[in-house]
Nucleic acid binder design. Structure first.
Lengths: 252, 252
DNA sequence: ACATGAATATTGGAT
DNA sequence: ATCCAATTTTCATGT
């Protein structure tokens, strides 16, 4: 797993290490150092000299991790070119990307550790409780939303986006359902409203209902929902451990 | 910078190392190992046995980095409790968070490396080209958007959100300006439209214009903009290296 | 390559 | 604590 490890490397040693490991490829290269980071592209940023952990993955992605938080201080998701050089005796890494045009430049002023790791194949990854799962479960059994509901379509395209679930209620009215896997905000309400308006514009004066289905709504969103004549239905995307009387779990 | 380093630790050594370093605090603790990761909370996920780099920062944030991409395979932004244990001879880290209730559980099946790093103070960080900067620059000189424009308000609250810039044009008409630091999508168009509708509802029949100011728009967004009677103005948030004749740079 | 939308989004600020 | 909007969002997906 550990391909190579250098402690307190000199600038020359670090530059050679990086050059060799990146040329070899296939490794996750990591440098712990006091460094200075520049970014220019979609925005521009400067991180003055500080101690960071720099990760360079096999796909060329670069991230500069600081002492706190999940988000890196600087990063680049994918790079088309990686370059290592000694500039005025300091090892420098430049990661460049063409579309969009941007780059990250890390100057390793005081290297403390350099690592090359081979992570090999990783196992399967399973995520449960996504919106897609919720959609499938509700399409399978739309009565979870409301008794008598029948699904007409999923991801039905309109001129303002795709309708998550398009259905007909027990009274024959068309129903637009907007799903959210988490707490729904007013953005979800506006999204739903656009879909309902769009459907109304097509079917004319036929009655069209709009339902926001989510585990929760923010208070302002619920107000707006009512003001627009739309409805809310509590639906949970995750398996429930303890199900209250009002709650509806897809896997309950 | 490197407080401690273990290569090929036994499960017992790793557990002790983690326990000690996390109790001591102030360090970025890292483990390279074949491990299995569980997450449960806002969603649920399982990462089957694979080789990962696990970072535990001083603020309790945990991230499990895989061989590719900037985004971790599993993570937790902040944790209220970190727990290390030996379960059936395997070192296990559990990071728990109370609000929202969630946890990540990492079982280090085959540890290869353990690190404790002290990152110390990091220097200043400067980000340029944010929307806030763009807003300030345009409020300072709104003629960048259009000659004769005078700013009435910034972040003016309406019942559907805050208007980035509220202005009056040379003909005395009210102007709602929505800013985007990147390419504007149809969501930005709908946002702008909501603000314009909201202003119209208040001022009655007075004429209200809506301008979307961004460095670029997607083609569908531009179509919708036209259909709604709104306008687009190209404005760049970043300093321009080479400014074309039609372009307007805030720092040009 | 472009557009779209989800995400365990994260993060910071305002209320 | 809640809500809201920006983000170098990233990332997968469809066209």
């Amino acid at each position: 797993m550990v391909r190579d490890l250098l402690t307190e490397p000199s600038h020359e040693e670090l530059a050679e290490f990086l050059d060799e490991q990146l040329r070899l490829g296939g490794a996750l290269v990591q440098v712990v150092a006091e460094c200075e980071v520049l970014y220019s592209g979609r925005a521009a940023s400067v991180a003055e000299a500080g101690e960071y952990v720099v990760l360079v993955k096999a796909d060329g992605s670069v991230q500069v991790q600081g002492p706190r938080g999940v988000k890196p201080v600087n990063w680049q998701p994918q790079t088309d070119r990686l370059d290592v050089a000694l500039e005025e005796g300091v090892a420098v890494l430049v990661a460049e990307r063409f579309t969009p045009a941007e780059f990250v430049r890390v100057a390793f002023h005081r290297p403390a550790l350099a690592l090359a790791l081979e992570l090999g194949e990783n196992g399967n990854f399973l995520l449960m409780g996504t919106e897609a799962e919720m959609q499938r479960a509700l399409a399978q059994d739309p009565t979870i939303i409301e008794p008598g509901l029948t699904v007409l379509d999923m991801e039905l395209p309109t001129d303002v986006g795709g309708i998550d679930l398009f259905a007909r209620d027990v009274a024959g009215r068309l129903v637009v359902v907007e799903l959210k896997r988490g707490k729904a905000t007013h953005e979800a309400v506006h999204q739903l409203n656009r879909y309902v308006q769009s459907v109304r514009a097509v079917v004319g004066d036929a009655e069209v209902r709009g339902i926001l289905a989510a585990p929760a709504v923010t208070a302002p969103a619920l107000n707006r929902l009512g003001a627009l004549g739309l409805e809310f239905r509590e639906v949970t995307a995750l398996p429930l451990v303890e199900s209250g009387p009002e709650q509806v779990g897809l896997f309950g």
